[in-house]
Design a protein around this nucleic acid. Structure first.
Lengths: 104, 104
DNA sequence: AATCCATTTCGCAAATTTCCGAAATATATT
DNA sequence: AATATATTTCGGAAATTTGCGAAATGGATT
């Protein structure tokens, strides 16, 4: 009796999920920042200095990206060193590129 | 005295804007649908039949995609034939791929 | 002019997102 | 044990998004 029809493919849901993670300029900024400082330690506080938002708000954007799997934080108290999660980043990239390669 | 500092690059804002347009599975579905039926006429009603949402809700998702420039509607009363806006689609594709090509 | 039809717009409710400052956390240092 | 530090979590406000059904739209048909 389970009437759960599926309306969206896994791929469609994945595109939407990754896109949502990238749907705020602060989060795009964070990913850019991490990608451009791959060799350095990236702390929340460093990014906060370049952004017009409260630290607690930045923290929530970081959590959002973590939830999407795109970044990870290595705890090193009282700091947290953030970096891109390469494996999931590659998956997001593949997912989005495949979507944009629709034969239109 | 205009204290408007700019915190995000145009590119970052563009990524966020396009990503937002793709951040809901219904909208991803619509773009897939249009891309896979490029030769046919695509009416709102046809898509509505494959989706678990009210027609008015679908209409609002279509408006969202139109606002982002990704689709356009050719009015042919009482129908509206939808299709992907190729020029803006290509721009979105380029924007997103460039973003994902960050040297990480 | 009255009716039909696909679609959108409107009015509104519910859910989610974004944001902040204050408080909590967890460790290192004094 | 008290203090200092970077960050997160909490509580709550404001804004935005998602959704629906009813009404409006605009041209075609009777």
């Amino acid at each position: 009796m389970s009437e759960k029809e599926k309306y969206y493919t896994d791929s469609q849901e994945k595109v939407a999920r990754f896109a949502k993670a990238l749907s705020h300029p602060v989060r795009v900024f964070i990913l850019d920042y991490l990608a451009n400082n791959i060799d350095k330690c990236c702390y929340s506080g460093d990014m906060a200095e370049e952004l017009p938002i409260a630290r607690s708000t930045l923290s929530e954007h970081l959590a959002e990206l973590k939830k999407a799997g795109l970044i990870q934080g290595e705890i090193n108290p009282p700091y947290i060193k953030y970096c891109i999660n390469r494996e999931n980043w590659e998956e997001a990239k593949k997912t989005m590129i495949q979507f944009f390669n629709l034969k239109i």
